[in-house]
């Protein structure tokens, strides 16, 4: 499988293979691979001895998990209320136009993933775009171009 069994094993071992730790285990796998490879989910179900449906149920319920690989560059647009009233929707729309993808998707070349986030707690700077953990405050549609250009260099 794409996911290395021994790596997944060591993650499961850290939680003593407790079914109650399913979410934590999946979080660590997600951290390792940037998504949840399908084989890893089946493997976790087998080792924890729980139905696959439960593992897939959890993996698809929570926003933190992705069954699709994510892009190298992660762009998160804060959609908190403070950012919303300051115009985050327009910033998101401009990013969607420029990257030619919708929020939640990854560009075909695997370079960018565009996502929304409910609130990053930097409301004073709203609208906020977080690009690979770097915060860009007081964003406007006009600033989107320079943000993306600075990444291409």
């Amino acid at each position: 499988m794409t996911a290395n069994e021994s790596k997944v094993d060591s993650i499961i071992d850290e939680y003593n293979a407790e079914p109650g730790s399913l979410i934590s285990i999946l979080q660590d796998i997600q951290l390792e691979y940037n998504y949840l490879p399908e084989e890893s989910l089946e493997y976790v179900a087998k080792i924890l001895d729980i139905p696959r449906v439960q593992v897939f149920g959890v993996a698809t319920f929570f926003k933190a998990f992705s069954l699709k690989p994510k892009g190298k560059q992660q762009i998160h647009v804060c959609m908190g209320t403070a950012c919303h009233v300051r115009g985050s929707k327009k910033v998101l729309e401009e990013l969607e136009r420029k990257l030619e993808i919708k929020a939640g998707d990854t560009t075909d070349d695997g370079e960018y993933t565009l996502e929304t986030v409910n609130c990053v707690g930097a409301c004073a700077l709203g609208p906020v775009v977080v690009e690979n953990e770097k915060y860009h405050g007081e964003m406007t549609p006009i600033k989107v171009e320079s943000l993306l250009n600075s990444k291409k260099v």
């Binding site: 407790e18 109650g20 399913l22 979410i23 934590s24 979080q27 319920f61 929570f62 926003k63 998990f65």
Partner: peptide, 23 residues
């Protein structure tokens, strides 16, 4: 325990379900 990014888990019984490793 770390949450999984679901707003509803702020509701107490949903939070406990999540602590048990369930949706």
């Amino acid at each position: 325990n770390r949450g999984g990014g679901a707003f509803v888990c702020g509701e107490s019984t949903a939070l406990m379900a999540s602590l048990e490793g369930k949706p």
